[in-house]
Design a protein around this nucleic acid. Structure first.
Lengths: 197, 197, 197, 197
DNA sequence: TATGAATGAGTCTTCATTCAT
DNA sequence: TATGAATGAAGACTCATTCAT
C-alpha cells in the first residue's frame, strides 16, 4: 500500500515537493539525485536516508499528486448542487492540479509513468482508479441529465480527461489566460450552454 | 531545415524505424545506443556513422512521424467531400498514426519532446505547425457548418487533439477494439449525429 | 583565478602529484583516467569526485608546477648576493624543477600546453609570466653588470630558458651527471668565468 | 631504414605535407585520420592504401623534416667560408626549418617524439644523429677558433639547439620579426662580435 | 541525521583500422 | 586507387547507491 507522505515529516515532504518540480521540468531520468539534493540543501547521499531509491521519490511524488487531487475533487463534488456544477468541479480541480502555481505532481504522474517499476505500479493504479471513479460518476450523472451525449461513458471520460491533460503542453503559466478562465472556456466547449441561451 | 529521412538510404531509414519503436516502448532516455544497434544488427559505435548523436536519431524519428502523418492527412482531406468527412479524416489519420501497427514515431514526438535540445526544436515545430494548420482549417469548417460549437476554435483544436493523444495511455493494441472502431466511437462523441437520427 | 592545490586536501594533492608523473611519462593524451585511478588506488569514476574533467587535473598539475617553482626561485634569489649568484639561482632552481627527483609538473607544462583549452590558458599564463618576470630581472642585472652581453634581454631570456628546457629531452636521471653538476656546467657556458681566471 | 618520401608519388607527398601541418597545429593525438583525409580530399579509409598506420604517417613526416633540413644544412655549410659563417649557417637553416613558411615537419619531430613506437625510433634517431653531427663539427670548429668558449662541446651543442628549439613556443609567424632578423639577433647573442667593434 | 568519499556499472561517443565493392 | 560502411576496443564521464564516520 502506498501511503501519502505525512505532514509531520517536514524534511521528507519538502523533498517530495521539490522533486516534483524538478521531475516536471527536466523529466525523471534527466533529474539526478544530486539535483534534488542541491535543491533542498542536502548532499546526494543524504537523500537515501529518507528514501531507499530514486524511484521511491518518484512514487511518492505521484502518490502525493493523485491523492491530494482526489481529496480536493471529493470536496468540490460534495459542494456541487447540480450535474453541471459537478462537471465544472472536475474541470476546475483537475486543471488547477495540473497547471496551478506550485503544482507539479500530477503532471509528473502523466509523463513519467514509464519510469515506475512493475512492482510499484499496482499501488499507484489503485489511487488513480479512485480518482477516475469520481470522474466516472460525475460524468454519468451529466449524461443521464442530458447535458452531454455519449454511448460509452468510459470513453467519454477518457476523452475529456485527455483533452485536459494535453493542456500541460501548451498552457503558459505566465500568459494572459488564468486557469479559472481556461476552465470556464473548456467547460463551454464540453457542455454547450442550454438552448435558448 | 529538418528533412525527412530519404528512402534511398535504406540502412538509415531502417534505423529510424527501429529506433522509433524502442523509444516508444522504453523511452528515449532508457533506450541505449546499444539497444538500437542490437535491434538492427550493428555495433553501437557504427550508429555514429549514420547519425552524429543519439539525439539526431530522436529528431529523425520525430520528423518522420510528423511529416508522414501530415502527408496522409493531406491526402485524406483532399478525398473528403463534406465538413463531417473532414473531421472524420482528422480522427482516423491521427489515431492510425498513433495507435496503428508499426506506428511509433508520432507517439515518440508526444512523449519525448523534453529530450530535444533547444537547437533542434524550431525545425520540428515548423513541421508540427504545418500539421496543426490542417487540423485548424478542417475544424473551422466544421464549426462554420454548425457541426460543433466553439467560441475559440483554437482551443477546440487543442481539446480534440488532446482527447486523441491520450489514447496511447489506455488503448490496447491487442484488445477487442480496432483503431477503426475507436475512431468511429470518438467521432460519435465529438460530432453528435444530426438530430432526428 | 587558478589556485594551487591546497595541502589540506591530501587526496587531491596526491592525485595531482601522481598525475604529473603519468602525464610526463606518457603524455596527457595517452594517459587515461583509468591509469591515474590505478596509480592512486581509485576507480576511474571516483576521480570525478575531485576534478570535474581530466583537463582540470592537467591544469592543476601545471599550476602546481609553476607556482612551486616560482616560490623556490623567489627564495633562492633573495638569498643570492651578486648578479652571478642570481643567474646561478635561475639555472639551479629551474633545472631541479625540471629534472629533479619527483619532479614532473614543470615538464608537463612545457609539453602539454596544447591540451589546455582556451578558457584555461589565461590563468596559467598569469602564473607563467610571474615566473618569467623573476628571470627577466635577474638577467637584466647580469647584463648591467657586464656578465653577459645582449642587446635584447628578452631574447636573451628566451634563449637561456630554451637551452635549459631542452635538457628534458636528453638528460638521463640515472646517468653519471647530477643535476647540480649539470647546472654548474651550463652556468660555465652561459657566464664564462672572468678573464684572467 | 627510413626513406624520405619520394617526389614521384605526388599523392603520398602531399599527404605528408598536409599531415605535418595538422600534427603541428593540433598535435598528433588530437589529429584524426579523418582530419587528414578531409584536408586532402580523401575518405579516411583511403589513407590506408598509402600508409599502413597513422603512425607511419607521423614517421614519414618526421623523416621528411629531418632529412630535408639535413640536406639544406649540408649545402649551407659547404658554402660557408669561416667558422663564424658556419655557425650562422646552423642557426639560419634550423630556424627556417622550424619557423619558416610551410614548415612544420621539424617542429613535429620535436613535440611528437613520444608518439613514435620503440620500433620506429631507431631509424629516426639515425637521421637525427646525422643532422646533429653536422652541428657538432661546426660548433667544434667555432670553439677551436676561439669564437665561443665551452669545456664540453656536446653540452654546448645541446644548449644552442635548445635555445633555438624553444622559439616555436613564442615566435609569431605574423609578427614584425622576420626569421632572418631573428637568426641574426640570436647569432649576436651566441657569438658576441669581436672586441674592438 | 547528515556528510564526504568512493564504487562500479553503465552511458554516449571517438577513432584507427578493415574490407567488400 | 578509392569509397562507404562497419568494426571493436577504448575513451571520458555520469550517476544511483553505499558506508564509515
Amino acid at each position: 500500500m502506498i501511503l501519502p507522505v505525512q505532514d509531520d515529516n517536514s524534511r521528507k515532504s519538502e523533498l517530495v515537493r521539490v522533486a516534483a518540480g524538478l521531475f516536471r521540468d527536466r523529466g525523471f531520468e534527466r533529474t539526478t539525485v544530486r539535483d534534488i539534493g542541491n535543491a533542498v540543501g542536502l548532499q546526494s547521499g543524504s537523500l537515501f536516508y529518507h528514501f531507499r531509491t530514486k524511484e521511491e521519490i518518484l512514487v511518492a511524488v505521484m502518490a502525493l499528486g493523485i491523492t491530494s487531487t482526489t481529496e480536493q475533487l471529493r470536496a468540490a463534488l460534495a459542494a456541487a448542487t447540480s450535474p453541471r456544477e459537478k462537471v465544472a468541479a472536475l474541470v476546475n480541480v483537475h486543471l488547477h492540479s495540473l497547471l496551478g502555481e506550485n503544482q507539479a505532481a500530477l503532471e509528473v504522474m502523466l509523463y513519467e509513468w514509464r519510469s515506475v517499476s512493475p512492482e510499484q505500479k499496482p499501488g499507484l493504479i489503485v489511487l488513480r482508479d479512485r480518482y477516475e471513479d469520481l470522474w466516472q460518476s460525475a460524468l454519468e450523472e451529466a449524461v443521464a441529465a442530458g447535458l452531454i451525449r455519449a454511448e460509452d461513458p468510459r470513453l467519454l471520460r477518457r476523452m475529456v480527461l485527455g483533452s485536459l491533460q494535453w493542456s500541460v503542453q501548451w498552457y503558459k503559466r505566465d500568459g494572459d489566460l488564468s486557469v479559472e478562465q481556461l476552465a470556464q472556456q473548456m467547460l463551454d466547449i464540453l457542455l454547450p450552454p442550454p438552448d435558448g441561451q
